[in-house]
Structures are given as structure tokens and as C-alpha cells.
Write a protein that binds this DNA or RNA. Structure first.
Lengths: 200, 200
DNA sequence: TTATTTTATAAACAGTGTTTAGTAAATTTG
DNA sequence: CAAATTTACTAAACACTGTTTATAAAATAA
């Protein structure tokens, strides 16, 4: 069965080539502005070929989201390393916001873009891990936090971070009449204030 | 000048017909799924006619956003009426979240959708008023809040509310494995907790 | 009534996601 | 090895999209 092994390998390589290229183009030009035809052109295949490996553009987004969630998790592992539970929680939130600042297009496609149908009906690939990281970081902090419920605590922290980044990325903070640098500084201040407020 | 008066009046009526229809369709089917052709068909004009009254689809969104921001402001005026500053602030945040729950498609187009170019270069119509409402509600509360800066205070409250609603609307809270009703309840709890935390 | 301006549209352009029918190459079978 | 079959790929088409242009009809001005 050497031939079917190689064929399977080649199939997986082709899939990797497609989503790798898709991810690059999503980051550079955004999801909506990246067309199947553009992706096909870059990998020097016909547009129809992509449909032999992926059901539709939605599935392409779904797969790229999986890669992106894995990258976020890696950032968490690298940056939220403190042995002190509270400090680790602070590092985690800062890591999340930093990810949004440094990879706005990835963040967009992970948390702002309309969910692909596959993600709604099934599960998000590598997304649970990141949320688990938050939950497991919060748990040992609960006695030092002004929350009684871990669900409320985690959602409060996540929503604040997400709210700040998504308002920034989609340029809604414009109503505050600040320039880019001032906006980033204000967001960082607000994150720090929130971390202060939730502490007992 | 009676004729040009009537013409101006007719022009404004046509504009109202177009954005009124556009708004209805944006709410029912969403911005992306509503096409200029669909709008034209509904008002029984050719697609090209719409371009005599509005520059492009972006401008249509910009105008509808204006209407939507005005509606949000009206909701604020109706629901945040307390004479007690702190209570008024609580009413305001609850009004904001309620607006998101009750008009998810409007909320989407106001705060989540990519900004129209016109809104980036110029100003958002009727958006400043709503943010001003928040600022003016917060100002007399400052001495009772655990914030020193009104900018941080207003952004913290806005970002939390927006974070919760946008994660809900774009179905990201799915990772917490709760049903729709549980999600709404958790969001309301988190709002109440935040209001408790920011108080001195 | 004629000339001019205004208003509306049919048709086209360049793009999109996706499907279908057909071809050429690789593999399996006799 | 040759024939049959499966696999991999693509050209072309379908049904859309936002937008522009050239043209016709209606309303107004001269």
C-alpha cells in the first residue's frame, strides 16, 4: 500500500499548501478581499482544484481559524508563565491584547468575522484550548478575585479584552478623537485598571 | 422657485425611500446579503437609479448607521432617566446591552461591521451624541467610581458592554458550551458584576 | 414649439463563489 | 505489455455582486 500512502501524503501537502497560502492572503488582504481565484493563481492551480480539497470558502476560513487559535495558544504559553496565579492572569490578558495589536487581521478572522457554519454546528478547532487556558489560570485566583463565579470572571476578562481590541480594530474608538498611539495607550490603561478592579 | 423646491423635496423623499428600504433589508438579511439590485427591485427602480442618490453601497451603510445611532440615543433617553447619577449609569449600560439583544442586526452594522470609508475620514452621524451621553452620565459619578480618568472609565464600561454583545452576536461564547438563554443570563450577570466592581 | 436640463434605465464591465462536463495522466487489472 | 479504470485537474459556464456608461424619455425653460 505504498502508493496510497504517498497519495495521502500528497493530498495533505496540497491541503497545507492551500490553507497556508489562504492564511497569508487573509492576513495581507483580509478574508473578504481574498478570492478563491487569487489563491488558486498564487499556487498555480485552477480555482476548481481548491474545491477538490475544501468544500467551500467557509471551510477555508474554518481551517485558518484553527491555525490562528493554535498561534494564540502558543502566545499564551510563551507569555503567561508566572508561577504566581494573579501575575499569570495579568500576563494572560496582556498577551491577549498584544496578540490583537500585533495580528489585527488574524484577530479579526478569529473573533470578529461571522462564524463559518461548520464552527456553529460543530466545534472550533484549537479554540477550546485557549479558553481552557483562561479558565485554568483564573481558577487558582478565585479567592483573590472579587467574583464569586468563575464563568462570570472569565467572561468579564475576555469581554473587556475583546471589547477593547475589536472597537480598536473596527475603528469605533474614533469617537473619542484620539490618534492611534493615544488609543493604544488608553486601551493598555483600561486593561490595567480592570486588572486592578477585579482584585480583592 | 416653486418647482425647484418641489424637486428638492422629491429628491429627499427618494433618498428616504432608498435608505428606509435599505435599513429594512439590512435588518432582515444583513448588510452583505442585501444587494443594490434587491433594494432597487423592492422600490421598483433600476439599480442604476440608486447611484443617482448615493455614491456607493458604503454610503448607504453610512446613512443607515446614522439612523441606527439615533435610535440608540433615543433608547438611552428613554431608559436612562434616573436622577441618581450612579443609578443612571447602571440604566445606561443595561440599555446598551438590551439594544444589542433586541436589535442584533442593527448593533452589528453599527459596531461590528467594517467602517465605511466616509466614517473613517469624516465623522459618524449621530454617534458622538450617544458617546457624549455616556461621558455626561459618567462625569457626575466619577467621585463614586474606582477610576481616576473619565476616558478610562467610559472606555471600560463601553468595552465591557460591547465585548459581551459582540461575542454573543458573532457566536464566540459558544466555547463556554451554554445554550442561548444561559448565555444571555451570564451576560447580564457579568454586566451587573462590572457595575458592582467599578463602584467605590 | 423648440431647446435644454433632469431623471431613469438597459446593457455592459469586471469581479465573486461554485458546479459541471470533459481531458489527460496515473494506477490497476487482465 | 496493453487495456480498463480510477484519480487529478481544468475550461467553461452559472448565477450572482457593485458599479459605470451610453441612451432614451420626461420635465422644464426659452
Amino acid at each position: 500500500m505504498g502508493i496510497s500512502d504517498r497519495k495521502e501524503r500528497e493530498k495533505q501537502e496540497m491541503r497545507k499548501l492551500i490553507i497556508g497560502t489562504a492564511m497569508d492572503m487573509f492576513i495581507h488582504d483580509g478574508y473578504e478581499k481574498t478570492s478563491i481565484r487569487n489563491i488558486a493563481e498564487k499556487i498555480e492551480y485552477s480555482p476548481a482544484t481548491i474545491y477538490l480539497y475544501y468544500k467551500d470558502k467557509d471551510e477555508l476560513l474554518y481551517e485558518v481559524q484553527g491555525e490562528a487559535f493554535a498561534e494564540l495558544y502558543k502566545a499564551f504559553e510563551k507569555e503567561a508563565t508566572s508561577t504566581d496565579p494573579m501575575e499569570k492572569l495579568e500576563q494572560l490578558l496582556h498577551s491577549y491584547v498584544k496578540f490583537g495589536f500585533e495580528h489585527p487581521d488574524l484577530y479579526d478572522l478569529m473573533f470578529i468575522l461571522r462564524s463559518p457554519m461548520k464552527a456553529v454546528s460543530e466545534d472550533w478547532p484549537n479554540c477550546d484550548e485557549s479558553f481552557e487556558f483562561l479558565l485554568k489560570t483564573i481558577t487558582p485566583c478565585m479567592h483573590q478575585l472579587r467574583f464569586s463565579d468563575p464563568g462570570v470572571a472569565s467572561l468579564s476578562i475576555w469581554a473587556l479584552g475583546h471589547g477593547l481590541i475589536s472597537l480598536f480594530i473596527r475603528q469605533r474608538i474614533k469617537v473619542m478623537h484620539l490618534n492611534d498611539e493615544e488609543q493604544r495607550a488608553l486601551i493598555t490603561s483600561t486593561v490595567n485598571e480592570h486588572l486592578r478592579l477585579i482584585k480583592k
